[in-house]
Design a protein around this nucleic acid. Sequence first.
RNA 1: GCGUAGGUGGCGGAGCGGUCAAUCGCAACAGACUGUAAAUCUGUCGCCCUAUGGGCUACGAAGGUUCAAAUCCUUCCCUACGCACCA
Length: 405
Amino acid sequence: MSKKDLQNLSNPDINELLSRGIEKIYPNQEFFKKNLEERKITLYFGIDPTGPTLHLGHMISLKKLRDFQLLGHKIILLIGDFTATIGDPSGKENTRKMLTTQEVLDNAKLYKEQASKFISFEGSNKAEIEYNSKWLSKMTFKDIIELSSQMTVDQMLKRDMFEKRMENNEPIYIHEFLYPLMQGYDSVALNVDAEIGGNDQTFNMLVGRDLMKSLNNKEKFVIAVKLLVDPTGKKMGKTEGNMITFKDTNYEMYGKVMSWTDGMIVEGFEICTDVSLDELENIKKELKEGKNPKELKMRLAREIISLFYNDEEVEQAEKNFTETFSDGGLPKDLSEVDVSKDSLLSDILVAQKIVDSKSEFRRLIDQGAVRDAETGEKITDPFYKIEEDRVFKIGARRFIKIKVK
RNA sequence: GCGUAGGUGGCGGAGCGGUCAAUCGCAACAGACUGUAAAUCUGUCGCCCUAUGGGCUACGAAGGUUCAAAUCCUUCCCUACGCACCA
């Protein structure tokens, strides 16, 4: 936790825990609740360490995990290091580059650190961290065949992703069937009572439930949390651009939240923040009454950032945003480069990866998208040379400060 | 293994010898508008060149035919579907 000490959080309300931001609980909510009240359970959340940062999608599950931890249940963070090293060539020939063991371990280390913003790896009921290579890498072909025999092809094909591919006459590879099995086997190996994960993982989590039943003769609960999506256009995650990661700066987070569509406001409050349910109702009401959604979105941004940063940093982010975008000022975190006198602006921007190519730069010039950020003067010369320190704004949100050496 | 239909830009999907850097839709980017958005409208959308022009690289891969190929031929690779095979 960034601000509050875990210990100081009040005990979460179990009904809220099991309904807010929850897509569905398998087999059902009541049964699960009964179990939670009668005993302490073990539940886990699995992540494949494919990149160096966790993002908001992970946070939703982690926040839930935190609540379970606070209620005294045992939680496990499972790092899918094995699955991540295998790589998933589901696309075409764009074989997703396999991660090396080292990369995976590095990522995993970062994950623990990032996850500790929400769950605690210390204290009496500390969260455990596990790696699925521990059991998956040891499986023999025989083990795998036995595991595969637990599931029929038809059951696999029920997965809508596969269904769609069948419809579109797209290939499905055998190993893609093995993925849910591997993930499902994690549950068996950990012998947990429950698993939590994004709604997109429901199928895999349910495979684990089936395997658990047949192999360990045990009921495994599955908690599918809602995904953060725009109800109308599926803007989120798709473009990645506005997916908030744990490593984003407070400025970046603010801008990303503000770029969400209005339709995501209510859901954003519901699943990403700690505002009370009463307040949530109030927010819905305000929206309906015609309050400027911008105000609410700004609040949403503050709420989300406050999960990662302190109050002062939240304020800074908002101030920066207002000044930069609403009032046309300069962002606080603008990047700087030193160049020699008479360097071509086009060369600098390409080198700084602010534009992809000189051709793109030219187009931007033609479109009047390149301007002096302070005076607003448009740069119209494609061969503009840097003569003095100057700040440029390219399009709506690209900025660069160029200094002459 | 046989047969059929296919493999085109980030994705979907046209084109089937020159006028193709490739219609169109989505995504993206820019401009206008706005609430920073969304929606809408307009424009852009391979790379390079001081350019209303020129060059280069691209249409699964490699060769070939042709003045000229994404488009024709050959071989190979890959996918789907049907048939056959089925320990």
